[in-house]
Design a protein around this nucleic acid. Structure first.
Length: 591
RNA sequence: GCGCCCGUAGCUCAGCUGGAUAGAGCAGUGGUUUUCUAAACCACCGGUCACAGGUUCGAGUCCUGUCGGGCGCGCCA
C-alpha cells in the first residue's frame, strides 16, 4: 500500500509543485470510500481555491498520471482505489517472495539497541510482577532484531545489596552451608530448611531469606544483634571482592536462582544476550561517582550526596537525585548511572530502553536529568519504556490464594493445565495435545499482556485470559491454524497449480490492505516501543480474514480462482506466523 | 501539598504524527454447520469521546482549567 501511496504522492507533486514528502496520503476510516485518500485542505491556501474545487480538478488530471489506480473526488477529498487484480498481485507477490522475511528490513542496520528487561532478584522465585517487563522486553528485542538492529538484551538481575550478607550468614548458621573439598557448596541441613538442592532450591531459600530479614531488623522481636554484626561483616567481605567462602555462597545463590529463571524463560521464549547483575557494575561505581564530582554537580545535603536538578527540570525541584547515603554507600541511581556509561562505552547504542514499570518514572527522569547535567550527549537515546501495573481482580495487588506473591511458574502451570482441558474438549483427535496446550496457554497469557497499550494497567482476570474468544492470542492462532489446514487439504488434493486469477480476490481487498500494512506496523511498533500496535494489527487481520474465508470457499473452485485464493491464504498464514513470532507467541499448525 | 499518568458503549479496550457519518471484543438478543477446525461467522442492541473554555477550515486527538482514579515524592530498588 505504501508503494501505491508513493506513486500517488509523486503524481500529486508533479501536478501541484508541492514536495512529495509534504503530501500526506491517508487511509480512510471507511473502506467503502477507497483504499487511500488525500484531503485537499492543505492545498487550499497555496492554490487559493476551495478544497472541493481542488479535489475535483486534481482528480480529473490524475487519471492520466496513474495506472491501475482510479481517483475520484468526494467533497474536499480525493479517494483512490487500486485496481483489484493489481492490488492482489502486488501484495501477494511481495509476500510470496519474502515469506518468513516479510516484515523484516534493514531499517536499523548498523545501529545497536540495548534493551534492559525482566531483571528479577535472586534468592526469590520470579513472580507475576516480572511478567510484563519480561514479555514486553522480549517483544521489543524481536521487533528491533527484525528491523536489522543489533540488539543487546540485558538482564540486570538484582544480585547485590547488604541483605545478601544476611542471607549468606543465615545459610551458614541455619543450613550448615559451606564449601566442600571439591569447591562445591554443600548445605548439611538443607532438608530442615526445606531447601531442595537438586531440584528447586529457590523456594526454600526464599523462606530463609525472609527469616533472615526479620532477624536483621531491630524493630522485630526476632532481632539478633550478633547475627546482624556477622551479616554486616559478610556484606563488607562481599563488597571487598575477596573470593572466599562468603563469595562462593553468594555465587551459589545467584547460580541456583538463574537456573530457576532459565526454566521459566525457556517456556516464555525469553533470551537475554547478557546477564549482568548489579554486582557487575560494582567496580564502576567509584569512577561514576568521581565523574559527577569532577563535573562539579554534586552537593552535600543532610550528609547525603545529591545532584540538584531544578535547573534542568522544574518538576524535579523538590526531588534531587541521591547518589550517596549519609553513610557513604551508593544508591540505585548511582548504579544505573554507572551501568549507563558502561553500556554507552561498550555499544554506542542508538537507543537504550529500560523496560521498567511506570512507578519508577521519577527515577528515570532524574537519571536523564543527571546525564544532562553531566553533558552526556547520548542522553536523548535513553528511554524509559514504562508500563502499567499488573493487578488482580478488583484492582488489588495480584497474589495467590494464600496471599503471598504469585510465582510465575505456578501461574504458567495453571494456565496450561486449564488450556489442556479446553484442547481435549475442542479437538479430541489432535496429536501432541500437551505441547499445543502449552503454546496456546502461554500464547494467551502473553498476547493478553501485549494487546493493550503498555501504559494501561492490566487487571489479570483468569477467566478472561482463558476465554480464548474474541480479541485473544488463541483467536489469532486459530485463524493461523485454519489457514494451515486449508493448505494441507489443498496439497493433499493437488490443487493450486493453475495460474491465479487475481481479479478473483476482489472480495478480499480489506485483507490485502491489512497484509500490505504489516511491514509499516512492525516499524511503528518498534519506533514507539509499543508491541500492542502489532498485536492490534494481527487481530484486525484475523478478523477481516475470518470474515472473508467463511464467505469465499477456497478449495474446489475454478482452478484459477482456487489458485488465487490459496495464494492469499498462504500469504495470510505467513503474516500471522511472522507477527506472532515477533510477539513471542507460538503459531501451531493445528489446534 | 507538589510532580507524572489515565478518564472513549454496561465491562475491557482500538482510534497512527488533528481530517469525511467514533470502531472492536466481552456481556445481552436473534441467526449460521450434508462444504476448507463453530476457539468461527452474520445481524441487532448499545457512546453528550469525564466536564468547561481555547487554538484551527476541521479536535476523541493539540493548549488551559475543573472533576474523578492511579502512581510517585532524599538516604529501598
Amino acid at each position: 500500500m505504501r508503494h501505491f501511496a508513493d506513486s500517488i504522492a509523486q503524481a500529486l507533486s508533479a501536478l501541484t509543485g508541492v514536495a512529495p514528502s509534504e503530501i500526506k496520503i491517508e487511509e480512510p476510516r471507511d473502506r467503502a470510500m477507497g483504499d487511500l485518500a488525500f484531503p485537499c485542505f492543505a492545498l487550499a491556501k497555496a492554490l487559493k481555491k476551495a478544497p472541493p474545487a481542488i479535489a475535483s480538478e486534481l482528480a480529473g488530471q490524475l487519471g492520466a498520471k496513474l495506472t491501475g489506480i482510479t481517483a475520484v473526488a468526494s467533497g474536499p477529498y480525493i479517494n483512490f482505489q487500486v485496481e483489484r487484480a493489481l492490488l492482489a498481485r502486488t501484495v501477494v507477490g511481495t509476500i510470496e517472495t519474502r515469506r518468513a522475511e516479510y516484515g523484516r528490513s534493514d531499517y536499523g542496520r548498523g545501529k545497536t539497541i540495548v534493551i534492559d528487561f525482566s531483571s528479577p532478584n535472586i534468592a526469590k522465585p520470579m513472580h507475576v510482577g516480572h511478567l510484563r517487563s519480561t514479555i514486553l522486553g522480549q517483544a521489543l528485542v524481536n521487533l528491533h532484531e527484525a528491523l536489522g538492529y543489533r540488539t543487546v538484551g540485558i538482564n540486570h538481575i538484582g544480585d547485590w545489596g547488604s541483605m545478601f550478607g544476611g542471607l549468606v550468614v543465615a545459610m551458614k548458621r541455619w543450613g550448615g552451608a559451606r564449601v566442600g573439598a571439591d569447591g562445591k557448596v554443600v548445605l548439611d541441613r538443607a532438608k530442615e530448611l526445606g531447601i531442595d538442592i537438586e531440584g528447586d532450591p529457590v523456594r526454600g531459600l526464599l523462606e530463609v531469606y525472609q527469616r533472615s530479614k526479620k532477624v536483621l531488623d531491630p524493630e522485630k522481636p526476632e532481632h539478633d544483634p550478633a547475627f546482624a554484626a556477622e551479616a554486616r561483616a559478610a556484606w563488607i567481605e562481599l563488597e571487598s571482592g575477596k573470593d572466599g567462602e562468603i563469595r562462593a555462597l553468594w555465587r551459589w545463590v545467584t547460580e541456583v536462582s538463574m537456573r530457576g529463571f532459565s526454566r521459566t524463560y525457556k517456556r516464555l521464549g525469553i533470551r537475554h544476550d547478557l546477564v549482568r547483575g548489579e554486582s557487575f557494575y560494582e567496580p564502576f561505581l567509584a569512577p561514576t561517582f568521581a565523574r559527577c564530582e569532577q563535573a562539579g554537580i554534586t552537593e552535600i545535603s543532610d550528609g547525603a550526596t545529591i545532584v540538584a536538578l531544578k535547573a534542568i527540570d522544574k518538576g524535579l525541584a523538590e526531588t534531587p537525585c541521591l547518589l550517596k547515603q549519609r553513610d557513604g554507600t551508593t544508591l540505585y541511581a548511582t548504579r544505573d548511572l554507572a551501568a549507563l556509561y558502561h553500556r554507552w562505552d561498550e555499544f554506542h547504542f542508538e537507543r537504550c530502553l529500560y523496560v521498567v514499570g511506570a512507578e519508577q518514572k521519577l527515577h528515570f527522569r532524574q537519571l536523564k536529568a543527571v546525564l544532562k547535567r553531566l553533558g552526556a550527549d547520548f542522553e536523548p537515546r535513553v528511554e524509559h519504556v514504562d508500563f502499567g501495573l499488573l493487578l488482580g481482580t478488583g484492582r488489588t495487588k495480584l497474589a495467590s490464594r494464600k496471599g503471598d506473591v504469585l510465582v510465575l511458574d505456578e501461574l504458567l502451570d495453571e494456565v496450561v493445565e486449564e488450556t489442556s482441558r479446553v484442547v481435549r474438549e475442542k479437538n479430541p483427535e489432535l496429536a501432541g495435545q500437551q505441547q499445543i496446550a502449552e503454546q496456546i496457554g502461554i500464547g494467551a497469557l502473553v498476547f493478553n499482556d501485549l494487546k493493550r497499550e503498555r501504559i494501561k494497567d492490566v487487571v489479570f482476570e483468569k477467566a478472561e485470559v482463558l476465554s480464548f474468544e474474541g480479541e485473544t492470542g488463541p483467536y489469532v492462532q486459530y485463524t493461523h491454524a485454519r489457514m494451515a489446514s486449508i493448505l494441507r487439504k489443498a496439497a493433499a488434493s493437488g490443487q493450486g497449480g493453475a495460474t491465479p486469477d487475481w481479479a478473483a480476490l476482489a472480495d478480499a481487498a480489506p485483507v490485502l490492505i491489512r497484509l500490505s500494512q504489516f511491514p509499516d506496523v512492525v516499524r511503528s511498533a518498534a519506533d514507539h516501543a509499543e508491541p500492542s500496535e502489532l498485536a492490534q494489527a494481527l487481530l484486525a487481520l484475523s478478523r477481516d480474514l475470518s470474515t472473508w474465508y467463511v464467505g469465499s470457499r477456497v478449495l474446489d473452485q475454478e482452478p484459477s480462482v482456487t489458485a488465487a485464493r490459496l495464494a492469499l491464504v498462504r500469504s495470510c498464514k505467513t503474516v500471522l506466523a511472522n507477527g506472532l513470532r515477533l510477539l513471542g507467541v507460538a503459531a501451531p499448525e493445528e489446534m
